[in-house]
Design a protein around this nucleic acid. Structure first.
Lengths: 293, 293
DNA sequence: AATGTCCTCTGACTAAAGTCAGAGGATGGA
DNA sequence: TCCATCCTCTGACTTTAGTCAGAGGACATT
């Protein structure tokens, strides 16, 4: 399996990598072209550019000066934080970026060009599959403090979604409350799934002395559904629960969350009698964790 | 369709490209690492390295000097042709390459790691498909002189294959001869299909005054069968014949070349009565070319 | 034997990419 | 208010990557 992936890597870096770079950088150094592209039509902070492209600050500064000198970008002070600077594309810069866009299209066409119609369709379908799965494998799941910005973003999205999907809306006040401290060691933990640095999913665990641990706040962003991310978050929570000595986990859920319900069943959860009085719950599930060797 | 390819390009250059380069170049400049890899365990001619990596001869020479200086390669004269030089990895070079190998494996595993078993299988299958089709689209078909090394290589392989597949072998002396000059403008032309700078297929055209043009020497290397390359060579020959004012093309073939025969049929050729006395032929085909607009 | 082509190498460059140290203003927390 | 930290910038490098012209030996063709 590994050898297949390697074959793919070789071919793809040759075909896509080289082509991409070659098309992107016509006349202009590749570094400048990439930067111009990354700034985007709406502009960016210099800081985010530095972290996204992973550049030395001196080097980035110089690249910006050269783009500025060519009249492609304008750098201004950020209003709220005087240390930050904002880069925006000028009209000429936008035109240049549109040209890069056109070239990218051309590169794509150069790949499709030599193929027959049927081959093109198969290629595009297979590319879509590879792309989806590569994206899935790029998602990073790791613990975060429930107070962290990313955790906050997830929770907001989670509650927003409940409000939209439950038959009669969702009022956090009526639901049983879980304090931040209960989703943080040593009482529990909070996992955030991130893609390209943006939070796209979460899940929490609350340990209860002498009782099964509870799984809470399971959420996956609409944008990345179907990548098996929910299952991964769930598996990660279970693994961490097991490592904490937990033998049984349980959770409750609302009847409108059908995909979640079937995911729980597929993951080996069985429905049990209500073990709490959560007013928004219709189903209660439980799973016995296998004790790792 | 183009936008799908572009999405793919973006994801893949991020995930594979960056990973690949990073893993490959440890401490050593990327150019050197790539070269070290490309030399391979069995060694290579400097010439083939130059064409495969598409490097300037001066630059390549310098890269070799630095690898030699580090004790990783040894450059010696080629026995048969005193102009060529052969590069071989030393023990240290082989060890270094094994390390790169290990790293590539690691990179592949890092991609598969986060996925479930079913996802891995789908990913590997889709990667194989993408890879095959990208390889197909990398093949370059262009005219060459029949005396050129690549053309020679193709013709040797072609005759070798005929000898292996025909029921009673193949003796070029008995077959009707086609002079090099007849497969070169203005009397005809010779196309070579190349992949990574290596010839992998060919096809020739012989113009005949007042008669249909003849298609000759159609061959596709075993290594790249199933990529639709035969069809592309044929289409290219037809297009060039048409551009030359030819209205009808024809060809003869042996009954043991079954894939070729079905390809001709699929491409719109119909079987006709023998139009020559080629002793090895069992089928004669003809096709009327559509006059381009 | 002469001539043109092929292959590799060296010398002499240039441009791009990247690194490092430190200056200097802005901000946030003690 | 002071001090540590953050952010961006400049100066002064080094390393990589790549180009171009031409030398000189080896072959192939006539």
């Amino acid at each position: 399996m590994v050898s297949h992936v390697r074959r793919f890597n070789r071919t793809v870096t040759q075909r896509i990598g080289a082509l991409h770079d070659h098309f992107l950088a016509r006349g202009r150094p590749l570094g400048q072209a990439r930067l111009l592209w990354e700034i985007g039509p709406g502009g960016s902070d210099v800081r985010t550019l530095r972290s996204r492209l992973d550049l030395d600050s001196g080097y980035l500064s110089r690249l910006l000066r050269s783009l500025e000198h060519d009249g492609l970008v304008a750098v201004t002070q950020n209003g709220s934080d005087g240390r930050l600077r904002v880069v925006r594309l000028t009209a000429a810069g936008l035109a240049e970026r549109a040209e890069l866009d056109r070239r990218s299209d051309e590169a794509a066409r150069a790949i499709l060009g030599p193929l027959t119609g049927a081959q093109r369709e198969r290629l595009v379908a297979a590319m879509a599959e590879v792309e989806r799965l590569l994206v899935a494998s790029m998602v990073d799941i790791s613990p975060a403090d429930p107070r962290h910005v990313d955790a906050r973003t997830c929770l907001r999205a989670y509650f927003g979604e409940l409000a939209g999907r439950f038959d009669h809306g969702f009022d956090p006040e009526r639901s049983s409350h879980v304090a931040d401290a209960e989703m943080r060691p040593p009482s529990g933990l909070f996992l955030v799934a991130a893609l390209y640095g943006e939070p796209v999913g979460c899940g929490a665990l609350r340990f209860r002395d002498g009782e099964p641990a509870e799984i809470k706040r399971m959420w996956v962003s609409e944008a990345v559904r179907g990548l098996g991310l929910g299952r991964r978050v769930l598996a990660e929570l279970e693994a961490r629960a097991r490592a904490h000595g937990v033998r049984v986990v349980r959770l409750e859920t609302n009847r409108s969350l059908t995909e979640a319900i079937s995911m729980y069943r597929a993951a080996g959860y069985r429905e049990v009698a209500p073990f709490n009085a959560e007013p928004y719950a219709h189903h209660w599930f439980e799973k016995e964790l296998e004790t790792g060797s």
